[in-house]
Amino acid sequence: MLNPSVDLLGFLALGFLGGFGHCVGMCAPFVLLVSRRFAAPDAGRAAALGAQLWYTLGRVLTYAVLGALAGLVGGVVELAGSLVGLQRAASVLAGTVLVLEAIVGLAGSGPLARTKGGRLFARVSAALGRRVPGHPFGLGLLLGLLPCGLLYSALIAAVSRGGPLGGALALLAFGLGTAPALLGVSLADDLLARRRALLDRLARLFLLAMGAWFVWTGLRG
């Protein structure tokens, strides 16, 4: 039996459980990026939550479109083949943004900020920043394309939904299911960030490592 039918609650559960088991580890850097890029440190928790909700909405919408495509083509083989180039590009771009964000952040508050290298990184980061979405919703739309094994699993299951609407609803449920875990990461980051100095540096190192990993993954294919 191929692709046993999964109901919408099943997709929601897949996203919810996978959110804690998978997404927290893989996507936490992007959650940190959204908080740091789109909500000022002193803007309050509501601003950070608002940015995260816009980011989540964008990501879920991209998932829904992918689900509709999976339901439309009736198989993930063709979809995966046509998406692979786009996903690699998204991985390299997202990884590069993370690395630059981390380096600028690490250097920004120290003596490196006044060096030629620090200023160069800041300029490169600003230049790249103009090429990535300036709103968390846009960033969510883009990062929804990142290669992800759990997303692939959801797409494979969505094929059995029998059409684009069913596929879109399935991935919508999956995406919404992933939200609590990632919003929890955002909440923890926001609360922990009151102790900015050390924790912020640790977060930047995390961003740096994950960014390098995403670039490597995208280039290696």
């Binding site: 088991g21 875990a181 929890g184 909440l187 923890a188 980051d189 009151r194």
Partner: peptide, 21 residues
Amino acid sequence: AETVLGLAVAVAIAAASFAVR
């Protein structure tokens, strides 16, 4: 208080991740 709460949320997320795995 907020830092402790943040740590508690982070620990809860880590524990839930571990439990799910």
